[in-house]
Design a protein around this nucleic acid. Structure first.
Lengths: 199, 199
DNA sequence: GCTTATTTGTACTGATCGGTACAAACTGGA
DNA sequence: TCCAGTTTGTACCGATCAGTACAAATAAGC
């Protein structure tokens, strides 16, 4: 018998939720994925399946906090923070081979996890918005771009999975990186419009 | 006793799949949503739950074919076709209040529906790409924009649901409409780059 | 080595699952 | 009005569900 620690068990459980969704992730599948019996799972998670899901989402949020959200806030170079965000996103989602559990649960479940999911996405957009402002985008553009970027990441994950083609995700991330690399305040933006009108 | 027709039953079943996901959509929930007993459901769909799901997806695909894909191909004015696409998308997804079943099943299920889902998305991107080319976009930009648009629609639906805020979807659709309204061939694109380098 | 605490794992629970069998109710044609 | 075909609906099936009870195995401290 090999003693398991709770975090590695949680990792296995997370992959079961990703692969099958909340309702499709049975305790039988979890015992198979972790190598533990039900008694062990209930020893680690006395409140059962819903607690496991909550803790998986918390774990995902903490990872994003450590790897993406805090660095976006803290990086003295916002441009570097942005590129690091994309690097981390591509690593975490395995270049489109791994889906987003927050996105899946957002679609599949109703109330149980909605608060946690909402908090995660609101947090991501907020830190990205501030980073974009520091990078030179105007207030409104930054807000809009932050929402568009987080939405774009989610959409790329769905489409990559739907088409069974991870490269879709890679292409979309590449396009987003480029899009976010050209800060253009309102003044610059109207400069581009003048230029276009002149042609 | 009220006799039901198969199509309206299918509509009710579709909403159960949307609300609960494939695994969460039990026959009990379907009998409640349709007002029919299991015997009636099995009379309409002798191959059971998986057949219901296949037929719901086919029905969704047919609706998109009639309302969006064919009009995009057929409209003499590509710009009009594009705006009509967005109008239909907003209607179908109820301005972000209704999720996309294809997207949900793409994330939640593995093999059973992957062919149907892939076909739907590939078809959408293909007709959109051709429409964008006719609208003035270059070949590569059209390809890229088509993928970005379909991906963007999916992401907007996920994020709207995740934040419990349908306006997210409305804003993203608005931004996509604007984005697609300004065809810029390769020559025009490099003109913009020259202009920027001059500053 | 023994004892106690901790971790593991299986048998079992009531409920629900997808699906089947077949009786009941309804409809349409003669 | 009657009968055959069609549609509906419920009881039931074996399997699986989330969760519980508790015994077995292991580990740590004395």
């Amino acid at each position: 018998m090999v003693r398991r620690n709770r975090d590695s068990v949680l990792g296995n459980i997370a992959e079961v939720f990703r692969r099958y969704g909340y309702e499709g992730a049975s305790l039988g599948r979890m015992t198979a994925a972790t190598g533990l019996g039900k008694g062990s799972l209930y020893n680690f998670f006395p409140d059962g399946k819903e607690q496991m899901a909550h803790e998986v989402l918390s774990h995902v949020h903490r990872w994003f906090e450590e790897e993406i959200f805090r660095p976006l806030e803290a990086d003295v170079s916002p441009d570097h923070g942005l590129q690091r965000m994309f690097d981390s996103v591509e690593t975490y989602f395995q270049s489109g081979r791994r889906i987003c559990l927050m996105g899946l649960f957002a679609l599949e479940t109703e109330d149980a996890f909605s608060s946690q999911i909402r908090t995660y996405f609101v947090r991501w957009e907020e830190v990205l918005e501030l980073c974009l402002q520091r990078s030179g985008w105007g207030e409104h553009e930054a807000r809009d771009l932050a929402e568009d970027t987080v939405s774009g990441i989610q959409g790329a994950l769905v489409l990559a999975q739907a088409r069974r083609e991870p490269d879709v995700f890679v292409r979309r991330m590449h396009a987003l990186r480029i899009r976010l690399s050209h800060p253009a305040s309102g003044a610059r933006q109207s400069g581009i419009r003048d230029c276009l009108q002149g042609r």
